[in-house]
């Protein structure tokens, strides 16, 4: 149980680091670490095969794909965000406090969620959303989407014990397709407009 708590704590720390990191390469590494932590969590919860799959997809595959995309399009290492880094970290902490409050308010079945899993999952989801709305670079937003998905995945992890493995696999497939499509979209955006700063789309005319 203490290893599970340690992993959940590291996941929270990883979220805050993601919110405070400006460089795309650093964010990508943190997303990879988050994938590895998620896999370790699943292994702790006795889902070894799914854990290994998550490690391959979220810990290795997707970060490599994102890194390849980053190198191919030659995007700048960091783009100034819409939401300042300090404000994002502060908002992430407020999100965690809200998640902790919500855990106490929700009438959950006794022992359904391992201790501290629900607030970590909600905090991860919230951090992902903050990355999506707070960052200007499309690649960072894709990473935000991945982090959001990690939060949803973590929320769904207790369901696996109820035999909903296929549901999670379907979710993973959706994610894979989404990143694949986004990768192509970002590549096209980059080749067409020579930038992935979504703020500059405002200057587009018909």
């Amino acid at each position: 149980m203490s290893i599970l708590l340690l992993l959940l704590f590291l996941l929270l720390l990883n979220n805050l680091l993601l919110l405070g990191t400006d460089r795309l390469a650093g964010m990508n590494r943190l997303v990879a670490v988050q994938g590895c932590l998620l896999a370790a969590l699943l292994i702790c919860l006795d889902h070894v095969i799914i854990g290994a799959a998550i490690l391959l997809i979220k810990g290795v595959g997707l970060p490599l794909l994102l890194r390849r995309t980053h190198l191919r399009i030659g995007a700048p290492s960091s783009v100034p965000p819409h939401l300042p880094y300090a404000a994002a970290v502060l908002a992430g902490m407020l999100g965690l406090v809200f998640a902790l409050w919500l855990e106490k308010q929700l009438p959950l079945p006794q022992g359904f969620f391992p201790p501290f899993l629900l607030p970590t999952a909600l905090g991860t989801l919230f951090c992902g959303l903050l990355l999506v709305i707070g960052r200007a670079s499309a690649l960072s937003q894709v990473m935000g989407y991945l982090v959001t998905e990690n939060g949803i995945f973590l929320l769904g992890s207790p369901l696996m014990s109820a035999g909903a493995v296929w549901f999670e696999l379907t979710l993973l497939l959706d994610l894979f397709v989404a990143v694949f499509v986004m990768g192509i979209a970002i590549n096209h955006i980059s080749s067409k407009f020579e930038t992935i700063d979504v703020g500059r789309f405002r200057s587009l005319r018909d």
Binding site: L16, G20, A86, V89, L90, M93, V97, L100
Partner: peptide, 15 residues
């Protein structure tokens, strides 16, 4: 940013 990072770590631990 370094000081803010230290503050964020302390705040997280407090929470």
């Amino acid at each position: 940013r370094l000081i803010g990072g230290a503050g964020a770590l302390a705040a997280l631990t407090l929470i």
